[in-house]
C-alpha cells in the first residue's frame, strides 16, 4: 500500500529553533503512509525527540506543516489540539508512567482525552474502556498486575504498560521515543517485537526513535536517518550500508554493525 496511498502523516519543511538558538530541526519533510512502522535513527542531539514531539506539539515547531489524516496540526487551537492528540499515542524512553498510580489507572489515563474531568476524578470510566484495558493488559501478559502500583513493576513490564496506555487512545499513529533505551537486550527485542506486532494487528503507523541500529533494521520496514536536524537517509533496512551509516553518524568502522546484512546479501547474490 505504500507510495500511492495518501500519507497518514505528512511533515513539510518542519523547523524547530529552541529559545537557546539551537537549530534542532532544519526543514524536515517526511511522509508516513498508514500502517508503516518507521525507525528514526541518528546520533544524540540529531533532533529525533524534537521531531516526534513537534508532531503532537509537546514541542511547538518554529515553522513548517504537520498534517495528520488531512488535518493541519500546527495551527490548531488548544481544544482542537487535545482532540488531535488522542489520535497519536506516545511511548516514552523511561516509560513515563505516573509512578504512584496503579497499572490500571495508568492504562485508563490513555482515555483522559475522551473522558470528562469529574468522571475521571472518580475513576468512573465507561465499562467498555475498562474492558478494553483488561483485554490489552492480557494481550501484553499483565492482566494480573492491574492493581499493582506502577513503581512496583520491572522495566519491561512498565514499558508494556506504557504501550497499553498509548493503545488505549485508539490512535492511528504511534510516536515512540527510545522505547528500549533503559532495557536489557532481551527485553528490548521483546518490546520492539510487541510494538511491531501490535501495529500490524491494529494497522497502526509508528515512528520509532531508536539508538540501536540492529534493532531498527530487524523490526522496521523503513529507516530514516537524521543528522543535525536534517534527513540524510531514507530507505529500507537492506539499503542501510556503511556509507549510509557514515552519512548519519560520521566516520567509524561499520563493518561489524552491518555484517549481518552483507552476509544476507552474499547469500542472495552468490555471483557477486
Amino acid at each position: 500500500m505504500p507510495e500511492n496511498a495518501p500519507p497518514l502523516l505528512a511533515i513539510t519543511g518542519l523547523t524547530k529553533r529552541y529559545a537557546t538558538g539551537d537549530l534542532a530541526l532544519n526543514e524536515v519533510s517526511l511522509a508516513v503512509p498508514p500502517g508503516q512502522v518507521m525507525a528514526l535513527i541518528g546520533p544524540s542531539g540529531a533532533g529525533k525527540s524534537t521531531l516526534i514531539r513537534c508532531v503532537n506539539r509537546l514541542v511547538e515547531p518554529t515553522s513548517g506543516q504537520v498534517v495528520l489524516d488531512g488535518a493541519e496540526l500546527t495551527t490548531l487551537g488548544r481544544a482542537a489540539l487535545r482532540r488531535a492528540r488522542r489520535r497519536m499515542g506516545m511511548i516514552f524512553q523511561e516509560y513515563a508512567l505516573v509512578e504512584r498510580l496503579t497499572v490500571m489507572e495508568n492504562v485508563l489515563s490513555g482515555r483522559l482525552g475522551y473522558t470528562g474531568f469529574w468522571a475521571s476524578w472518580f475513576r468512573r470510566f465507561p465499562r467498555r474502556d475498562v474492558e478494553e484495558a483488561f483485554r490489552l493488559l492480557a494481550r501484553v501478559g499483565l492482566a494480573h498486575m492491574a492493581d499493582k502500583r506502577a513503581d512496583a513493576l520491572s522495566g519491561g513490564q512498565r514499558q508494556r504498560v506504557g504501550i497499553v496506555r498509548a493503545l488505549m487512545q485508539d490512535p492511528a499513529l504511534l510516536l515512540v521515543d527510545e522505547p528500549t533505551a533503559s532495557l536489557d537486550p532481551k527485553t528490548s527485542r521483546q518490546i520492539m517485537r510487541l510494538i511491531v506486532e501490535l501495529c500490524e494487528e491494529r494497522g497502526l503507523a509508528a515512528i520509532i526513535n531508536i539508538h540501536d541500529v540492529a534493532l531498527a533494521q530487524e523490526f522496521a520496514r523503513r529507516i530514516v536517518g537524521l543528522r543535525a536536524g536534517r534527513i540524510v537517509f531514507d530507505g529500507t533496512p537492506e539499503t542501510l550500508d556503511a556509507a549510509a551509516l557514515t552519512a548519519i553518524y560520521g566516520e567509524e568502522d561499520w563493518s561489524r554493525t552491518i555484517r549481518r546484512i552483507e552476509a544476507e546479501d552474499s547469500v542472495a547474490e552468490p555471483v557477486a
Binding site: 506516545m90 483522559l112 482525552g113
Partner: peptide, 20 residues
Amino acid sequence: AQAEAVRATGAGWFSWIAWS
C-alpha cells in the same frame, strides 16, 4: 516525563493536573 505523558493523551488541563 510523567506530566508530559499524560498531556500527550489529549487530557484537558484539569485532568492533566489531577492525573499527573
